[in-house]
């Protein structure tokens, strides 16, 4: 049943840090977060880790395991060989605070820049009528648990700090798509998606979709449809000509 596993866990702060070796007991059915908790309880009581529901629903325990962005609570130990060393590091796209905890405030700032839901005027509470087929696209995006793994993996900001200013990241471009497809939203969002929130930076290399623990098809269902809507408005020569001629 149980065995001793080798772990490398990054410990440090914003000035220095290193991968530190641990040997720790593993039992049947456990996930990586269980092991981190065992380290806290037995070997490293001040090991900082963010977690909450431990059921893959809150998106708090995002980290990188063997270099892959994942939720600690949804990564079962059984996916590793018994002799394999498991490396756990903080997210590498955000400033580190301590150990496995990073400063994810970038995401909250971006969230604030996306214009909110704008319903039809004259629509009173209780009068909303929407068909299931019309809400399903946006509902898929609302499954998002805001673990920010997609934001962390996206090379646009992961590999280029300076792009953080002009790029909202997959999670918030998906938020724009969600509102754009909301049956009762009247906001005009496509131009801003391209001009203010950096949709053009996305080169659809799909890492956001690959790491999404909720299995949301971010690229195919949100980002590409948004790019097509942008093309409708900005890169369609007929529309462009019409805009030039009539200065709409």
């Amino acid at each position: 049943m149980g065995y001793d596993a080798k772990f490398k866990v990054w410990r440090g702060d914003d000035e220095k840090g290193e991968l530190r070796d641990f040997t720790v007991e593993v039992n049947e059915g456990e996930v990586v977060l269980d092991i981190i908790h065992r380290l806290q309880a037995t070997q490293a009581p001040d090991l900082a880790v963010r977690w909450n529901c431990k059921a893959g629903k809150c998106g708090s325990c995002s980290a990188e395991i063997n270099g892959k962005p994942r939720l600690l609570c949804m990564t079962r130990m059984s996916v590793f060989e018994e002799g394999e060393t498991v490396t756990v590091t903080p997210l590498r796209a955000f400033p580190v605070i301590r150990d496995l905890v990073t400063d994810v405030s970038y995401n909250y700032e971006k969230a604030r820049e996306i214009p909110s839901f704008t319903p039809h005027e004259n629509l009173e509470p209780g009068e909303y009528r929407m068909q299931q087929v019309d809400v399903e696209r946006s509902q898929e995006f609302r499954k998002c648990i805001e673990c920010f793994l997609c934001q962390n993996t996206c090379h646009v900001v992961r590999d280029h700090e300076d792009n953080k200013k002009s790029f909202a990241g997959p999670r918030f471009l998906m938020r724009i798509a969600e509102l754009e497809m909301h049956p009762l939203d009247v906001g005009e969002r496509t131009d801003a998606a391209q001009d203010e929130h950096g949709l053009g930076y996305c080169n659809i290399t799909k890492c956001c979709t690959e790491v999404c623990p909720e299995g949301i098809k971010i690229t195919d269902n949100a980002l590409i449809p948004m790019k097509e809507r942008v093309a409708d408005r900005k890169y369609d020569p007929l529309v462009w000509l019409g805009n030039k001629l009539f200065r709409r």
Partner: peptide
């Protein structure tokens, strides 16, 4: 409770729907 739920729709909530478009 019903008013509070309807209010959420004005904030942007998307509940599952009945065939006639109301909240399931």
């Amino acid at each position: 409770a019903p008013d509070r739920v309807w209010e959420l729709e004005t904030y942007g909530a998307l509940f599952d729907r009945t065939a006639d478009g109301r909240i399931s």
